[in-house]
Amino acid sequence: MATVQAFARRPQTGELIAAKLNQVSKNYGAVQALKNFSLDVRAGELTAVLGPNGAGKTTAIKLLLGLVRPTSGRVSVFGGDPTALETHLRVGAMLQVGRVPESLRVREHIDLFSSYYSQPLPMKQTLAIAGIENLRDRKFGDLSGGQKQRVLFALAICGNPDLLFLDEPTVGLDVEARHLLWDEIRQLLTLGKTVVLTTHYLEEADALADRVVVINKGSMIAEGTPQQIKARTAGKKIRCVTRLSAVVVQALLGVIDVQDDRGTMVIHTSRPEDVLRELLNQDLDISGIEVAGAGLEDAFLALTQEKAN
Protein backbone atom coordinates (compact mmCIF):
# COMPACT_ATOMS: atom_id res chain seq x y z
CA MET A 1 0.00 0.00 0.00
CA ALA A 2 1.52 3.25 -1.12
CA THR A 3 0.31 5.39 1.76
CA VAL A 4 1.99 3.28 4.41
CA GLN A 5 5.46 2.92 2.93
CA ALA A 6 7.03 5.51 5.18
CA PHE A 7 5.66 3.63 8.14
CA ALA A 8 8.24 0.86 7.74
CA ARG A 9 11.27 2.53 9.20
CA ARG A 10 13.44 -0.33 10.33
CA PRO A 11 12.79 -3.86 9.14
CA GLN A 12 13.56 -6.17 12.03
CA THR A 13 14.11 -9.87 12.31
CA GLY A 14 12.60 -12.25 14.85
CA GLU A 15 15.99 -13.03 16.35
CA LEU A 16 16.35 -9.80 18.31
CA ILE A 17 14.73 -9.03 21.63
CA ALA A 18 12.82 -5.75 21.64
CA ALA A 19 11.63 -5.93 25.24
CA LYS A 20 12.24 -8.17 28.18
CA LEU A 21 10.82 -8.99 31.59
CA ASN A 22 13.40 -10.87 33.62
CA GLN A 23 12.17 -12.73 36.73
CA VAL A 24 9.77 -9.92 37.50
CA SER A 25 7.48 -9.92 40.52
CA LYS A 26 4.96 -7.19 41.18
CA ASN A 27 2.94 -6.79 44.36
CA TYR A 28 0.07 -4.39 44.89
CA GLY A 29 -0.13 -4.37 48.67
CA ALA A 30 -0.88 -7.96 49.64
CA VAL A 31 -1.87 -8.95 46.10
CA GLN A 32 0.86 -10.50 44.00
CA ALA A 33 0.02 -9.62 40.40
CA LEU A 34 3.11 -11.25 38.87
CA LYS A 35 5.37 -13.93 40.31
CA ASN A 36 8.84 -14.40 38.85
CA PHE A 37 7.50 -13.75 35.40
CA SER A 38 9.86 -13.69 32.44
CA LEU A 39 8.99 -12.65 28.93
CA ASP A 40 11.05 -12.08 25.81
CA VAL A 41 9.39 -9.97 23.14
CA ARG A 42 11.07 -10.74 19.84
CA ALA A 43 11.44 -7.88 17.39
CA GLY A 44 9.18 -7.99 14.35
CA GLU A 45 6.82 -10.49 15.94
CA LEU A 46 3.43 -10.35 17.58
CA THR A 47 3.56 -11.81 21.05
CA ALA A 48 0.16 -12.54 22.56
CA VAL A 49 -0.18 -12.66 26.32
CA LEU A 50 -3.21 -14.85 26.87
CA GLY A 51 -4.97 -15.33 30.16
CA PRO A 52 -8.20 -14.95 32.11
CA ASN A 53 -9.19 -11.69 33.83
CA GLY A 54 -6.91 -10.84 36.70
CA ALA A 55 -4.10 -13.05 35.41
CA GLY A 56 -1.55 -10.24 35.40
CA LYS A 57 -1.63 -9.36 31.68
CA THR A 58 -2.20 -5.65 32.16
CA THR A 59 0.46 -5.50 34.89
CA ALA A 60 2.97 -7.00 32.46
CA ILE A 61 2.11 -4.32 29.87
CA LYS A 62 2.32 -1.51 32.43
CA LEU A 63 5.74 -2.71 33.56
CA LEU A 64 6.99 -2.68 29.98
CA LEU A 65 5.59 0.85 29.55
CA GLY A 66 7.32 2.02 32.72
CA LEU A 67 3.95 2.96 34.26
CA VAL A 68 4.58 0.70 37.24
CA ARG A 69 7.86 -0.43 38.72
CA PRO A 70 8.65 -4.05 39.50
CA THR A 71 8.81 -5.18 43.13
CA SER A 72 11.73 -7.35 42.07
CA GLY A 73 13.33 -8.40 38.80
CA ARG A 74 14.34 -6.39 35.77
CA VAL A 75 12.45 -4.73 32.93
CA SER A 76 14.17 -3.54 29.79
CA VAL A 77 12.85 -2.12 26.54
CA PHE A 78 15.22 -1.75 23.59
CA GLY A 79 17.90 -2.68 26.09
CA GLY A 80 17.17 0.40 28.17
CA ASP A 81 14.99 1.85 30.89
CA PRO A 82 11.26 1.63 30.06
CA THR A 83 10.65 5.02 31.71
CA ALA A 84 13.26 6.87 29.61
CA LEU A 85 12.14 9.42 27.04
CA GLU A 86 14.24 7.68 24.36
CA THR A 87 12.21 4.53 25.01
CA HIS A 88 8.84 6.24 25.03
CA LEU A 89 9.64 7.90 21.71
CA ARG A 90 9.77 4.45 20.09
CA VAL A 91 6.78 2.92 21.85
CA GLY A 92 3.04 3.25 21.34
CA ALA A 93 0.32 1.91 23.60
CA MET A 94 -3.37 1.23 23.55
CA LEU A 95 -4.50 0.84 27.14
CA GLN A 96 -7.87 0.09 28.66
CA VAL A 97 -9.31 3.45 29.56
CA GLY A 98 -12.60 4.24 31.27
CA ARG A 99 -13.18 7.59 29.66
CA VAL A 100 -11.48 9.70 27.00
CA PRO A 101 -12.07 13.48 26.77
CA GLU A 102 -15.24 13.43 24.73
CA SER A 103 -15.47 16.99 23.52
CA LEU A 104 -12.36 16.82 21.34
CA ARG A 105 -12.57 15.74 17.72
CA VAL A 106 -10.74 12.69 16.40
CA ARG A 107 -8.26 14.78 14.40
CA GLU A 108 -7.59 16.97 17.44
CA HIS A 109 -6.73 13.98 19.61
CA ILE A 110 -4.40 12.67 16.89
CA ASP A 111 -2.79 16.07 16.32
CA LEU A 112 -1.99 16.38 20.03
CA PHE A 113 -0.60 12.86 20.44
CA SER A 114 1.44 13.18 17.23
CA SER A 115 3.11 16.29 18.67
CA TYR A 116 4.63 14.17 21.49
CA TYR A 117 6.82 12.25 19.03
CA SER A 118 9.83 13.36 17.04
CA GLN A 119 8.90 11.61 13.80
CA PRO A 120 5.13 11.14 13.81
CA LEU A 121 3.18 9.82 10.87
CA PRO A 122 1.34 12.37 8.76
CA MET A 123 -2.27 12.68 9.96
CA LYS A 124 -3.63 11.21 6.71
CA GLN A 125 -1.58 8.10 7.12
CA THR A 126 -2.55 7.58 10.76
CA LEU A 127 -6.21 7.92 9.81
CA ALA A 128 -5.74 5.52 6.89
CA ILE A 129 -3.99 2.82 8.90
CA ALA A 130 -6.63 2.92 11.62
CA GLY A 131 -9.38 3.05 8.98
CA ILE A 132 -11.01 6.15 10.44
CA GLU A 133 -10.71 8.72 7.63
CA ASN A 134 -14.46 9.24 7.76
CA LEU A 135 -14.42 9.91 11.52
CA ARG A 136 -11.86 12.71 11.26
CA ASP A 137 -14.14 15.57 12.34
CA ARG A 138 -16.35 13.66 14.76
CA LYS A 139 -16.18 14.27 18.48
CA PHE A 140 -14.88 11.33 20.46
CA GLY A 141 -18.03 11.20 22.59
CA ASP A 142 -20.21 10.68 19.50
CA LEU A 143 -18.43 7.50 18.38
CA SER A 144 -19.53 3.89 18.81
CA GLY A 145 -17.52 1.43 20.91
CA GLY A 146 -15.73 -0.05 17.91
CA GLN A 147 -14.93 3.39 16.49
CA LYS A 148 -13.55 4.54 19.84
CA GLN A 149 -11.23 1.53 19.97
CA ARG A 150 -9.96 2.37 16.49
CA VAL A 151 -9.26 5.97 17.50
CA LEU A 152 -7.30 4.72 20.52
CA PHE A 153 -5.46 2.43 18.11
CA ALA A 154 -4.69 5.47 15.95
CA LEU A 155 -3.30 7.30 19.01
CA ALA A 156 -1.06 4.30 19.70
CA ILE A 157 0.41 4.26 16.19
CA CYS A 158 0.51 7.98 15.33
CA GLY A 159 4.06 8.37 16.67
CA ASN A 160 5.28 5.71 14.24
CA PRO A 161 6.53 3.48 17.07
CA ASP A 162 8.74 0.44 16.60
CA LEU A 163 7.05 -1.35 19.47
CA LEU A 164 3.34 -1.35 20.09
CA PHE A 165 1.46 -2.52 23.19
CA LEU A 166 -2.21 -3.38 22.78
CA ASP A 167 -3.97 -4.16 26.05
CA GLU A 168 -7.13 -6.13 25.24
CA PRO A 169 -7.76 -4.05 22.12
CA THR A 170 -10.91 -5.90 21.05
CA VAL A 171 -12.62 -6.34 24.41
CA GLY A 172 -16.31 -5.53 24.13
CA LEU A 173 -16.27 -5.31 20.33
CA ASP A 174 -18.65 -7.22 18.06
CA VAL A 175 -17.27 -9.77 15.62
CA GLU A 176 -17.13 -7.40 12.66
CA ALA A 177 -15.31 -4.65 14.56
CA ARG A 178 -12.93 -7.21 16.02
CA HIS A 179 -11.99 -8.51 12.58
CA LEU A 180 -11.45 -4.99 11.28
CA LEU A 181 -9.01 -4.28 14.08
CA TRP A 182 -7.26 -7.60 13.45
CA ASP A 183 -6.71 -6.56 9.83
CA GLU A 184 -5.16 -3.30 10.99
CA ILE A 185 -2.86 -5.12 13.42
CA ARG A 186 -1.80 -7.56 10.68
CA GLN A 187 -0.96 -4.60 8.48
CA LEU A 188 1.44 -3.31 11.15
CA LEU A 189 3.17 -6.68 11.29
CA THR A 190 3.80 -6.64 7.56
CA LEU A 191 5.54 -3.31 8.14
CA GLY A 192 8.01 -4.91 10.54
CA LYS A 193 6.55 -3.56 13.78
CA THR A 194 6.84 -5.44 17.05
CA VAL A 195 3.53 -5.93 18.83
CA VAL A 196 2.62 -7.16 22.29
CA LEU A 197 -1.07 -7.90 22.61
CA THR A 198 -3.01 -9.10 25.64
CA THR A 199 -6.25 -10.96 25.21
CA HIS A 200 -8.47 -13.48 26.87
CA TYR A 201 -9.61 -14.89 23.55
CA LEU A 202 -7.64 -17.94 22.41
CA GLU A 203 -9.10 -17.31 18.95
CA GLU A 204 -7.54 -13.85 18.86
CA ALA A 205 -4.10 -15.09 19.84
CA ASP A 206 -4.42 -17.81 17.24
CA ALA A 207 -5.41 -15.36 14.50
CA LEU A 208 -2.61 -12.87 15.09
CA ALA A 209 0.27 -14.15 17.15
CA ASP A 210 3.65 -15.51 16.21
CA ARG A 211 4.12 -16.55 19.80
CA VAL A 212 1.66 -17.05 22.64
CA VAL A 213 2.40 -16.79 26.33
CA VAL A 214 -0.32 -18.18 28.58
CA ILE A 215 -0.46 -16.59 31.99
CA ASN A 216 -2.58 -17.35 35.02
CA LYS A 217 -2.47 -15.95 38.56
CA GLY A 218 0.72 -14.07 37.80
CA SER A 219 2.72 -17.00 36.48
CA MET A 220 3.49 -18.21 32.99
CA ILE A 221 1.86 -21.58 32.45
CA ALA A 222 2.63 -22.19 28.78
CA GLU A 223 4.54 -20.66 25.93
CA GLY A 224 4.78 -21.52 22.27
CA THR A 225 3.40 -20.99 18.79
CA PRO A 226 -0.39 -20.80 18.51
CA GLN A 227 -0.32 -24.33 17.06
CA GLN A 228 1.56 -25.65 20.06
CA ILE A 229 -0.77 -23.95 22.51
CA LYS A 230 -3.85 -25.12 20.69
CA ALA A 231 -2.56 -28.68 20.64
CA ARG A 232 -2.25 -28.52 24.38
CA THR A 233 -5.57 -26.86 25.02
CA ALA A 234 -7.88 -28.16 22.29
CA GLY A 235 -9.10 -31.12 24.32
CA LYS A 236 -12.45 -32.74 24.99
CA LYS A 237 -14.32 -33.40 28.17
CA ILE A 238 -15.69 -36.87 28.75
CA ARG A 239 -18.27 -37.36 31.48
CA CYS A 240 -19.21 -40.84 32.57
CA VAL A 241 -20.19 -43.01 35.52
CA THR A 242 -17.56 -45.68 35.97
CA ARG A 243 -16.20 -48.02 38.62
CA LEU A 244 -12.64 -47.32 37.47
CA SER A 245 -10.59 -45.29 39.89
CA ALA A 246 -9.33 -41.81 39.10
CA VAL A 247 -5.77 -43.05 39.38
CA VAL A 248 -6.29 -45.70 36.71
CA VAL A 249 -7.99 -43.24 34.36
CA GLN A 250 -5.36 -40.57 34.93
CA ALA A 251 -2.75 -43.08 33.77
CA LEU A 252 -4.42 -43.56 30.38
CA LEU A 253 -2.70 -42.09 27.34
CA GLY A 254 -3.87 -38.55 26.57
CA VAL A 255 -5.63 -37.84 29.86
CA ILE A 256 -4.85 -34.37 31.13
CA ASP A 257 -7.02 -34.19 34.20
CA VAL A 258 -9.59 -36.25 36.07
CA GLN A 259 -12.17 -34.82 38.42
CA ASP A 260 -15.15 -36.10 40.33
CA ASP A 261 -18.41 -34.23 39.92
CA ARG A 262 -20.96 -35.71 42.37
CA GLY A 263 -20.32 -39.31 41.36
CA THR A 264 -19.71 -38.52 37.70
CA MET A 265 -16.15 -38.67 36.49
CA VAL A 266 -15.04 -35.72 34.36
CA ILE A 267 -12.04 -36.52 32.19
CA HIS A 268 -10.21 -33.82 30.27
CA THR A 269 -8.30 -35.33 27.41
CA SER A 270 -6.39 -34.42 24.29
CA ARG A 271 -7.17 -37.87 22.73
CA PRO A 272 -10.87 -38.53 23.36
CA GLU A 273 -11.18 -41.50 20.94
CA ASP A 274 -8.30 -43.44 22.52
CA VAL A 275 -9.52 -42.71 26.03
CA LEU A 276 -13.11 -43.76 25.21
CA ARG A 277 -11.91 -47.03 23.68
CA GLU A 278 -9.92 -47.83 26.82
CA LEU A 279 -12.77 -46.88 29.13
CA LEU A 280 -15.23 -49.13 27.24
CA ASN A 281 -12.71 -51.99 27.26
CA GLN A 282 -11.90 -51.77 30.92
CA ASP A 283 -15.37 -51.10 32.33
CA LEU A 284 -18.25 -53.02 30.75
CA ASP A 285 -20.75 -51.33 33.07
CA ILE A 286 -19.76 -47.76 32.17
CA SER A 287 -22.78 -45.50 31.69
CA GLY A 288 -23.94 -41.94 31.14
CA ILE A 289 -21.22 -41.10 28.64
CA GLU A 290 -21.14 -37.53 27.33
CA VAL A 291 -18.38 -35.98 25.24
CA ALA A 292 -18.09 -32.22 24.85
CA GLY A 293 -15.54 -29.75 23.58
CA ALA A 294 -13.53 -28.17 26.33
CA GLY A 295 -13.97 -24.41 26.58
CA LEU A 296 -11.17 -21.96 27.07
CA GLU A 297 -11.76 -22.06 30.80
CA ASP A 298 -11.14 -25.79 30.69
CA ALA A 299 -8.06 -25.23 28.59
CA PHE A 300 -6.68 -22.83 31.17
CA LEU A 301 -7.56 -25.29 33.88
CA ALA A 302 -5.80 -28.05 31.98
CA LEU A 303 -2.71 -25.94 31.47
CA THR A 304 -2.70 -24.89 35.11
CA GLN A 305 -3.03 -28.49 36.27
CA GLU A 306 -0.28 -29.56 33.89
CA LYS A 307 1.97 -26.95 35.38
CA ALA A 308 1.09 -28.00 38.92
CA ASN A 309 1.85 -31.63 38.12
Binding site: L16, I17, A43, F78, G79, G80, A84, E86, Q119
Partner: peptide, 9 residues
Amino acid sequence: TTAISPAAI
Protein backbone atom coordinates in the same frame (compact mmCIF):
# COMPACT_ATOMS: atom_id res chain seq x y z
CA THR B 1 19.18 -7.97 24.83
CA THR B 2 20.61 -4.75 23.53
CA ALA B 3 20.61 -5.69 19.89
CA ILE B 4 18.35 -2.80 18.93
CA SER B 5 20.14 0.42 19.65
CA PRO B 6 18.27 2.88 21.86
CA ALA B 7 20.10 5.70 20.10
CA ALA B 8 18.07 5.23 16.94
CA ILE B 9 16.13 8.44 17.56
